[in-house]
Amino acid sequence: MMERTDEETGELVREWLQRYGVSIIVGLVLAVGAVGGYQWWQSAQLKQASEQSALLNQLGDAVEANQAQETQRIYAEMDQSAQTIGLAQLLMAKEAATNNDLARAKTFLGEAVNAKDPLVVDSARWQLANLEMRDGQYDAALSELQALKGSAYANQVALLEAVIYQQQGNLERAAEAYRSIQGDAAMLAQQLAAVEGELATATNPPTQ
């Protein structure tokens, strides 16, 4: 076996470093930079989350105080891509509805329906259904309620559907919806009796 002298070994190392050393050093610099960049990104994310949460709290206080201009100012400062924006849109819809601006309330709720949080989405759909019913847009309200089947709002959905069908004059569907509800038995029995009474009268009108 041929042995290399220290001088030959040193020469091989120098050649190897000349050939590969720069790329290794660059790789190490990039690796260190990536770690540092990720830590900076984490820190920035935490800072942004903290700032958005603080703005959300301020927005909630302004909505409760019914300070319309202040709510709009705070909302304008919020990051539209932040996780909290869906909750902010629910709050803005509440402020608009409180001031009878149903069109603006529906706009905010329509945006909140696209939130990442499923609970925010369900809440937006539920409030939108109520506003649509309040505005006489019964088909639109029923469409939103259909999307809430199986959600945490399932029992309330059946009740609102019953009310909508009753207001539409669709007494058979109203009675069916009332029968499906689990809740205050006495209240539901009274409502169901009233609807069935209307239905019986409509089916068998009194003779002259």
Rank of each mutant, 00 (worst) to 15 (best):
E11C: 05
S50Y: 04
Q69P: 00
A62H: 06
E111N: 12
A158G: 04
G183V: 05
L142T: 06
Y20F: 14
A158N: 11
A54C: 07
T107P: 00
D122K: 15
K106I: 09
V26A: 14
T207H: 12
P206N: 13
V26N: 09
M1K: 15
L17M: 10
G197V: 01
S143Q: 13
V22D: 06
D139W: 02
L87A: 13
P206Q: 15
S43R: 07
Q137E: 12
G33I: 07
A93N: 06
S50A: 09
A185T: 14
Q127Y: 08
Q208L: 07
D135R: 02
V35S: 08
Q69L: 04
L171A: 01
E176H: 04
A129E: 07
Q52G: 01
G197E: 02
S143H: 12
E77W: 07
A185W: 06
V163H: 03
T84R: 11
A68S: 12
L46G: 08
A200I: 04
L46M: 10
L192S: 01
I24K: 10
R179S: 03
L160K: 00
W126P: 01
T107S: 13
L128Y: 09
S151E: 01
L119S: 13
L17A: 12
Q39V: 09
N66M: 12
E77A: 11
L90P: 05
A115E: 01
M78E: 04
Q168G: 00
V29P: 07
L17W: 14
I164H: 00
V26I: 15
Q67E: 14
A162Y: 00
A147C: 05
N130D: 11
Y138H: 09
A44L: 09
A189G: 13
